[in-house]
């Protein structure tokens, strides 16, 4: 029975809704940043040393991958505004591939830790003391939650790409593309903070 009720379209409302949702995401991670700051304050040396074991190279590469993917999705909005459907799809495809590349890197990175028996609940990790347990607990939880957001973002972008292909998203109506962009940028923003907090505090 909704057909008669929803007839008008209000892009600003959808964008406002998306931003409000992003605020909840910011505070979701914000809660973890509170936990991080408290435990880092209480275990400065252990955090410092544990951070040495993370690969700065993989971290940097992943940061750059995400930055590029953010750029491509931002550019795809310009492309659709300029009525260039092909370019928009190409740019979105690039974003998706880069997102997957990020996940693959993450997989190998986590794999290394698991090989060394560094994971939550492992006896090896527990034997190294409280600071390390907390550092890696936060590391796995925060990067894991972030990776989950990457996956959700990728699905969102895929849906958007299909809608562009079917011209449901078009130069007259592309607010969904903008919203998927906003979500992806937020995922990028969170990584911009996760990266220094885990990799660069050596």
């Amino acid at each position: 029975m909704n057909t008669i009720l929803v007839t008008h379209r209000d892009d600003l409302a959808s964008k406002t809704g998306m931003w409000l949702f992003l605020f909840t995401e910011m505070l979701l991670f914000g809660g973890l940043f509170i936990v991080y700051s408290v435990y880092r304050y209480r275990n400065p040396i252990a955090f410092h040393q544990a951070a040495h074991e993370l690969s700065i190279i993989i971290g940097t590469i992943n940061t750059i991958i995400l930055l590029i993917s953010s750029t491509t999705i931002a550019m795809s909005i310009t492309a659709i505004q300029k009525k260039n459907k092909k370019l928009a799809l190409l740019l979105l495809g690039t974003t998706i591939l880069l997102g997957l590349a990020f996940l693959v890197n993450k997989y190998f990175e986590w794999g290394e830790h698991f090989k060394e028996h560094i994971y939550p609940g492992s006896a090896v990790l527990a034997s190294r003391g409280h600071g390390d347990v907390l550092f890696y607990g936060l590391y796995f939880f925060m990067t894991g939650l972030h990776a989950l957001h990457i996956i959700i973002g990728l699905i969102f972008i895929l849906v958007v790409a299909v809608s562009i292909f079917r011209e449901k998203i078009n130069p007259e109506n592309y607010v969904l593309l903008e919203n998927s962009g906003l979500y992806w940028h937020l995922v990028d923003l969170i990584w911009i903070f996760l990266f220094p907090l885990f990799y660069l505090i050596t």
Partner: peptide
């Protein structure tokens, strides 16, 4: 969202033994 993440942490604590709030693992 703050309680959302806190409840997720409790779930992680119970299932994965992460140690966010467990004093025996250094948590507060």
């Amino acid at each position: 969202p703050i309680i959302g993440i806190t409840l997720l942490m409790i779930i992680a604590e119970r299932t994965l033994h992460i140690g966010f709030f467990d004093p025996t693992l250094g948590g507060d």
